[in-house]
């Protein structure tokens, strides 16, 4: 890396203050997730995207979904466009894949709630 970074870890609500040096050594973390986050954030930042998808149900207008794995940050809006194209039918279970390999990221979009009718 060209320079050093001071970051706030977003992996959990602790929000550790991380320092990443030029050799990608991470300090200030309370757990291993912080090391991985720190390295990824200065090389190829990723995020989990959560949103909702239209569903034909008596209970709710929309079903919550997420990317199963973190996706490259710059793909967030492309992924939102795909999420907003689809709609679901009941029943839906937690973990059901609603879009496979979204935008070629290798991550699926999965449902995060059970909606039976």
């Amino acid at each position: 890396m060209e320079k050093e970074y001071d970051l706030i870890c977003i992996m959990c609500p602790n929000g550790c203050r991380l320092h990443v040096d030029k050799d990608l050594n991470v300090t200030g973390n309370k757990c291993l997730r912080g090391v991985n986050y720190g390295k990824a954030e200065v090389t190829h930042p990723t995020r989990i995207v959560t949103s909702t998808v239209k569903i034909d149900s008596h209970e709710l207008a929309v079903c919550p979904v997420k990317t199963k794995d973190p996706i490259p940050k710059e793909k967030i809006f492309d992924i939102m466009a795909e999420i907003n194209k689809i709609s679901l039918k009941c029943p839906v279970h937690i973990g059901d894949v609603v879009i496979q390999n979204v935008c070629g990221t290798g991550s699926d979009i999965v449902a995060t709630r059970e909606i039976l009718q």
Binding site: M11, C12, P13, T50, P64, K66, I94, T112, R113, E114
Partner: peptide, 22 residues
């Protein structure tokens, strides 16, 4: 709360609100 950030203590994995309450 459809966003993630729940459950790291209780279930040792990061869940969304609906997954957590489910």
């Amino acid at each position: 709360c459809v966003h993630n950030g729940f459950g790291l203590h209780e279930f040792k994995e990061e869940l969304t609100g609906p997954e957590f309450f489910s």
